[in-house]
Simulated assay, not measured.
Amino acid sequence: MRYFQKFMLAAALPAVCAAMPLAAQAAGPITAGSITNSPPMISYASDGTTLQGVIVDLAAAMSKQMGRQIVFKAMPFSGLLPAMQAKRIDISFTLMNDTPKREELVDFVDFFNLGTMLLIKKGNPQHVQSLETMCGMTVSTVQGSTQVTLVNEVNAKCSAAGKPAIKNMQYAQPSDARLQVQTGRVAAFLGNSPVMVYLAKTADNGKLFDVVAGHVYQPVPLGISVAKDNTALRDQLQKALNALIADGSYLKILQKYGVADGALKSAAINGGKNLKL
């Protein structure tokens, strides 16, 4: 009889686990690599140690759904995918565009829509009109970002028109790329649209920067990247994020930071597969 009871319990466990909420299926913490200086998406608070922003709040809400804490590890953008391949981190939860090229290396759980914009010095002293009209000028970008590819594409057009190329100063951290605009070393910083708009509105109370209006490049989803051999974690993240979308928590977080325009209706896996980047 005891053997029969044990057998029945063991047979029932898979069905019970499947019916249990994610929070009840707890496991160890999830280490998430991220850049940490791109407000309002992710940055340090004034104390210099507390992370805040859209990504941080989403991670906290998803942690509750999964019963697993997402713990951030700061690192340069260009080091994120190598760190995942070396298994030093479990995921990257940052401003990483979900592109076909990156999907060859990792899977993505998409969590936000964005584009690329030009951040310029207040008053536009170098008369930047668009990226296409910047042949011969200097921009800054983040190493390993899709913005680097965008500059290369425009440079091909500059060359075809017999014009000098755009000089691209690449930096490991967005804060360094931004500083070059402030000091006048570059004409513009080419970066993710919500960050550029936020900086234009908030840096020194809106006195330092502007964005070039009417020009948004590379509309593309941001994704949480996960190793291709870790489909269980990928699916768990997707399920947790879709639960937040369904109950309205996701939209409230985006509204809190003024970026609700980038909201997704559902968290797709590898939604950038058809992009041409």
Rank of each mutant, 00 (worst) to 15 (best):
N168Q: 12
L105Q: 14
V226G: 10
L9I: 14
A213R: 12
Q85Y: 05
G33A: 14
K239I: 03
N230C: 00
G162W: 06
R88S: 15
S92Q: 05
V148D: 14
Q238C: 05
D229Y: 01
L241K: 05
V151S: 05
P194C: 09
V54T: 12
C135Y: 00
P76C: 03
N152W: 00
A213S: 15
R2E: 14
P221N: 12
F72L: 07
V109I: 09
L237T: 04
V151H: 05
A18Y: 09
P39E: 06
S193R: 12
M75A: 13
S193K: 12
G184N: 04
A59D: 14
V211R: 12
A161G: 00
I166L: 10
N242D: 15
G115R: 11
I253K: 12
S63G: 13
L105H: 06
Q65I: 07
K228A: 13
A27L: 03
K167E: 15
R234P: 08
L95G: 02
L190I: 01
A246I: 03
A177W: 00
S78M: 10
T149M: 04
C158Q: 00
I269G: 10
A15Q: 05
D235R: 02
P164M: 09
S43V: 13
A18G: 11
N113C: 08
F209T: 04
S34P: 07
E103F: 01
N274K: 11
P100W: 01
A200Y: 08
G191H: 12
K163R: 13
A243W: 04
L114P: 00
V211A: 05
Q238T: 04
C158P: 02
G48V: 05
M20D: 08
P221I: 06
T149I: 04
N155V: 00
T116F: 11
L51D: 10
K265M: 13
S43H: 14
G144Y: 02
G53F: 07
L131T: 03
D98H: 11
S193W: 07
V128Y: 05
S92D: 15
D176Y: 03
V216G: 01
P100S: 02
A23T: 05
D204T: 11
A267E: 06
A172Q: 03
D98W: 01
P29E: 02
F7W: 13
N270W: 02
N205H: 14
V109N: 11
V186Q: 10
V226K: 09
S159C: 00
T94I: 05
F108W: 01
L58A: 09
L81N: 02
G144R: 00
L81S: 07
F77G: 10
L190A: 01
M66V: 09
F4D: 15
M134D: 02
V106K: 02
V186E: 08
N124K: 02
L118K: 06
A177M: 04
L9S: 08
D210A: 06
V54K: 09
N242T: 04
A260Y: 08
Q129M: 02
I166D: 11
A263I: 06
D47G: 11
L118P: 09
L222A: 09
S175D: 11
V139T: 10
V211P: 12
N37F: 07
Q126M: 00
A246C: 02
